[in-house]
Design a protein around this nucleic acid. Structure first.
Lengths: 148, 148
DNA sequence: TATAATTAAGTTGTGCACAATATAATTGTT
DNA sequence: AACAATTATATTGTGCACAACTTAATTATA
């Protein structure tokens, strides 16, 4: 295993910069939708499953309430999202889309195609890369569960 | 190319969560060194090349002065780093290590081994993953340069 | 050689990301 | 039923990350 303390040889550094630079690529694409990258991720979840619990959104994105609460507040201010208390459990908050938020989906449909085009990546490579990233996450999860 | 607006099928999302979760793994490892993850990256650069320009640190980590200025200020407060104006060009700032910062390297030597152990990843897989990430960055860079 | 353009670093403001804590609702236990 | 433990959300504080702007030093050019 690479144990030399060189920046470029550390997988964490490559992951960190790759993520940052890919997010940078998204910024001008998402700007017309009036969304930041994190807000876009929340909208993706809601377009997939409207009426989902705030808690469950946080689980899918690995975000806690300290991040999500103010983020959702901003999505409400923009007018894409609404919060409703669940009747059966007053602690839970259910997120729904406004008409405006639902309409935004059509505009967003084109985002993945734009990004793929910019990356000039073929389907097979794309899938292989996805699998690698999912594997890294699985290893992290395995360690986390082993530890507790 | 995957054009469905599903969270899990977007490479950006996998990269984003993988990076976040790997950083989370580092947190308890770096805590005894009194470093955040970003501070650790700056220290890695300095251990590799002491006396480097602040500007060049920013280029290697893809960080601008808005991020680096306060971060380096914190490293100075901890007592790991010192700032010196370059004599030949008074605009430039040269970063040097204190004895304490230099001594910390020995403790940090063990970090990559600890991380690899936690991920339970063999050398070949590790190298393949590194190459994938470097390739993603190359594609991003190629697009960025094509655009300007 | 004035002065315009560029460069390096710093500052301000916004929005994550997360730890720690607080509050209120629900569930479990005696 | 009373009360302890748990759960969902919100708030506070710290530290990134970056855009936009400011300041000071250097370089280019008229």
């Amino acid at each position: 295993m690479k144990s030399s303390l060189t920046l470029e040889h550390q997988i964490c550094f490559q992951l960190y910069t790759a993520s940052k630079e890919l997010t940078r690529l998204y910024r001008p694409i998402l700007a017309p939708l009036n969304l930041t990258y994190s807000q876009y991720l929340v909208m993706l979840v809601l377009w997939e499953e409207e009426g989902i619990d705030l808690k469950q959104v946080g689980e899918r994105l690995t975000l806690d309430s300290g991040t999500l609460s103010p983020l959702v507040k901003r999505l409400m201010q923009i007018g894409y999202v609404e919060k409703v208390r669940a009747q059966d459990d007053e602690r839970r908050i259910v997120l729904t889309l406004t008409d405006s938020g639902r309409a935004l989906r059509e505009q967003a449909e084109d985002v993945p195609r734009q990004v793929s085009g910019m990356l000039k990546i073929d389907e097979a490579t794309y899938v292989a890369y996805m699998e690698m990233l999912i594997d890294i996450k699985a290893r992290l999860k395995a360690f986390g569960e082993q530890q507790g």
